[in-house]
Deep mutational scan, measured.
Amino acid sequence: MPVRRGHVAPQNTFLDTIIRKFEGQSRKFIIANARVENCAVIYCNDGFCELCGYSRAEVMQRPCTCDFLHGPRTQRRAAAQIAQALLGAEERKVEIAFYRKDGSCFLCLVDVVPVKNEDGAVIMFILNFEVVMEKDMVGSPAHDTNHRGPPTSWLAPGRAKTFRLKLPALLALTARESSVRSGGAGGAGAPGAVVVDVDLTPAAPSSESLALDEVTAMDNHVAGLGPAEERRALVGPGSPPRSAPGQLPSPRAHSLNPDASGSSCSLARTRSRESCASVRRASSADDIEAMRAGVLPPPPRHASTGAMHPLRSGLLNSTSDSDLVRYRTISKIPQITLNFVDLKGDPFLASPTSDREIIAPKIKERTHNVTEKVTQVLSLGADVLPEYKLQAPRIHRWTILHYSPFKAVWDWLILLLVIYTAVFTPYSAAFLLKETEEGPPATECGYACQPLAVVDLIVDIMFIVDILINFRTTYVNANEEVVSHPGRIAVHYFKGWFLIDMVAAIPFDLLI
């Protein structure tokens, strides 16, 4: 008679799926529990143990900040960024110097990925580790590398530091407007667009060049630039800015003055950032001319202004700041037409079709709590990747769950009947059967004279019903998954307890 339990259901295979997918890609990662103190490590794979030199037993239950890997060259700011990422709910990448158990130093890129439950609360953290440099290539500990984003994938490793954006290309926007319009339909740009040429040739750093990471940081200074100062900065030398009595002219307006920039070969870094931020506020060169004239017309309804409409929906549905990093990277690809469009465009503009998908598509409701890094690593669709929660398995109709209350009560009843059979069957065979043979035949009273025979008949009927119930009862397979398919249940029961239950259900007393 089957006594099969499996009270692990309803099970959740999400954690096993993450481990299996990460292991298949030869990654070095740990999984931490966000619900406990210090976000203790609950799993670390073999790749991480080989990377740091510690065994799994030495890593388990330690804080996922990996303070046991810190050393003299470990930056405090990087460690603080990892700790801050564990307090938030967004994906974050941090470069930090770690030390192995043998004392060797290596520069590592740590990717902190939160995993949320159905309520939107962070319950786990996945920390992925990628070695960037070994100890002989690690720089000085005073050099802070965590304020910069990861290198873009479309640049060669040897040319990542030679990417320079020439400031004269930004200063000569109005001069290039006529050349853009003359391109017409034969050019790649839309009317009114501004073409910015980027020099990728390796050259020595000069005062006129600005690194790509500095251009990325310009967006942080746009908020500090007032509207009046932006307007004066875009007017140009024809209309000098008016300053109040006793007030000095704005240095932001002076930063885009061609006369002032041409007199000296070098520009201050602050002026460069502010000038680029001011130019980015204009949607095209037409807006710059309109600002000089004193009238700013409404933005025209053409394809170039609607190019950012799908980007707005993608940004609203993005799951991490990696989408913004990807957008900034692609927006700086050289030799393309940049349409400086305000994100607050007309909502009635139709979304044009684009061959290049900048932001990841909208994630469906079932995966809105899973970050983009987890979705990318697992390579699963929205119909396959579940949320991290207890999910009731989908069972067929008329199927009994093996952990249901009805099955528990039924098993206790069958257990009592088995005990009765084990006690009274030998007793009936030894004593009652002998008395029946010696006594007179009682054929007239039937079952009324033999109450134990009636009980034995009921017990046999219950055993037959138990066999039928076992054909529709779920079970737990070797992978700790609840199986509810009727065919698989029948095959599993035939290979197991079916023969024993059938022999126990045969009414031998009635056959004798």
Results as ranks from 00 to 15, higher is better:
residue 187 G to T: 11
residue 280 R to F: 15
residue 149 G to M: 06
residue 105 C to H: 12
residue 347 P to I: 04
residue 165 L to N: 10
residue 30 I to K: 01
residue 360 A to Q: 09
residue 146 N to S: 15
residue 255 S to Y: 05
residue 147 H to C: 05
residue 366 R to V: 11
residue 347 P to E: 11
residue 279 V to P: 06
residue 129 F to T: 01
residue 124 M to E: 01
residue 320 S to K: 09
residue 25 Q to L: 14
residue 184 G to H: 05
residue 12 N to D: 10
residue 37 E to T: 14
residue 280 R to E: 10
residue 334 P to M: 01
residue 20 R to K: 07
residue 242 R to K: 14
residue 97 A to R: 14
residue 132 V to T: 11
residue 110 V to Q: 01
residue 133 M to V: 13
residue 339 N to S: 09
residue 205 P to L: 06
residue 22 F to S: 13
residue 194 V to T: 06
residue 164 R to P: 14
residue 99 Y to S: 03
residue 84 Q to C: 07
residue 34 A to R: 14
residue 188 A to G: 06
residue 340 F to R: 14
residue 31 I to N: 01
residue 115 V to F: 13
residue 312 R to Q: 07
residue 112 V to G: 01
residue 166 K to P: 05
residue 86 L to H: 01
residue 124 M to W: 13
residue 275 S to A: 07
residue 299 P to W: 05
residue 261 S to R: 10
residue 16 D to H: 12
residue 136 D to H: 03
residue 79 A to L: 13
residue 38 N to A: 14
residue 365 E to M: 07
residue 135 K to P: 07
residue 125 F to D: 01
residue 311 L to A: 12
residue 306 G to T: 05
residue 354 S to V: 12
residue 274 E to P: 07
residue 60 M to Y: 14
residue 173 L to N: 12
residue 185 A to W: 03
residue 319 T to M: 07
residue 22 F to W: 13
residue 61 Q to S: 12
residue 362 K to W: 08
residue 60 M to C: 05
residue 117 N to P: 07
residue 343 L to G: 15
residue 330 I to A: 11
residue 100 R to L: 01
residue 170 L to D: 14
residue 160 A to G: 12
residue 21 K to T: 13
residue 212 L to P: 12
residue 255 S to R: 14
residue 370 V to H: 03
residue 149 G to T: 08
residue 310 P to F: 09
residue 222 V to N: 09
residue 148 R to H: 05
residue 46 D to W: 04
residue 358 I to Q: 08
residue 205 P to K: 04
residue 90 E to Y: 13
residue 94 V to E: 05
residue 245 P to T: 06
residue 46 D to I: 03
residue 365 E to H: 08
residue 97 A to K: 12
residue 179 S to P: 08
residue 301 R to W: 11
residue 236 G to N: 03
residue 11 Q to T: 13
residue 364 K to G: 14
residue 249 P to W: 09
residue 369 N to G: 06
residue 30 I to D: 01
residue 350 A to T: 07
residue 249 P to C: 10
residue 368 H to R: 12
residue 294 G to W: 04
residue 270 T to V: 13
residue 135 K to C: 09
residue 99 Y to Q: 01
residue 131 V to G: 11
residue 355 D to K: 14
residue 165 L to Q: 13
residue 5 R to E: 14
residue 4 R to S: 14
residue 377 V to Q: 01
residue 296 L to E: 14
residue 76 R to A: 14
residue 295 V to R: 09
residue 330 I to D: 05
residue 313 S to V: 07
residue 311 L to D: 14
residue 73 R to K: 12
residue 331 S to L: 01
residue 174 T to E: 14
residue 36 V to E: 13
residue 351 S to G: 08
residue 33 N to D: 06
residue 2 P to F: 06
residue 181 R to L: 08
residue 206 S to V: 09
residue 279 V to A: 14
residue 326 R to M: 07
residue 230 E to A: 09
residue 246 G to Q: 05
residue 146 N to G: 08
residue 274 E to H: 05
residue 52 C to F: 13
residue 282 A to Y: 15
residue 69 L to I: 01
residue 374 V to P: 01
residue 374 V to E: 01
residue 113 V to D: 11
residue 21 K to W: 08
residue 174 T to K: 14
residue 29 F to Y: 12
residue 280 R to G: 10
residue 247 Q to I: 09
residue 76 R to N: 15
residue 138 V to Q: 14
residue 125 F to G: 11
residue 334 P to F: 01
residue 200 L to F: 06
residue 156 A to Q: 15
residue 161 K to M: 03
residue 246 G to P: 12
residue 253 A to Y: 10
residue 67 D to P: 14
residue 369 N to Q: 11
residue 36 V to I: 07
residue 162 T to W: 14
residue 21 K to R: 07
residue 292 R to I: 12
residue 203 A to G: 07
residue 379 S to N: 04
residue 26 S to G: 14
residue 333 I to F: 03
residue 193 A to N: 15
residue 54 Y to K: 01
residue 69 L to E: 01
residue 217 A to W: 08
residue 305 T to E: 14
residue 50 E to D: 07
residue 106 F to L: 01
residue 88 G to K: 14
residue 74 T to P: 01
residue 265 C to R: 12
residue 288 I to Q: 04
residue 337 T to H: 14
residue 101 K to F: 01
residue 205 P to Q: 12
residue 173 L to Q: 13
residue 8 V to Q: 15
residue 377 V to N: 07
residue 348 F to N: 04
residue 100 R to F: 01
residue 18 I to E: 03
residue 290 A to D: 15
residue 46 D to N: 15
residue 33 N to S: 10
residue 265 C to H: 08
residue 350 A to H: 13
residue 26 S to E: 10
residue 35 R to D: 14
residue 337 T to R: 12
residue 188 A to C: 06
residue 228 A to P: 14
residue 127 L to D: 01
residue 185 A to N: 07
residue 176 R to I: 01
residue 71 G to S: 01
residue 267 L to S: 08
residue 139 G to L: 13
residue 289 E to C: 07
residue 66 C to D: 01
residue 62 R to T: 13
residue 129 F to G: 01
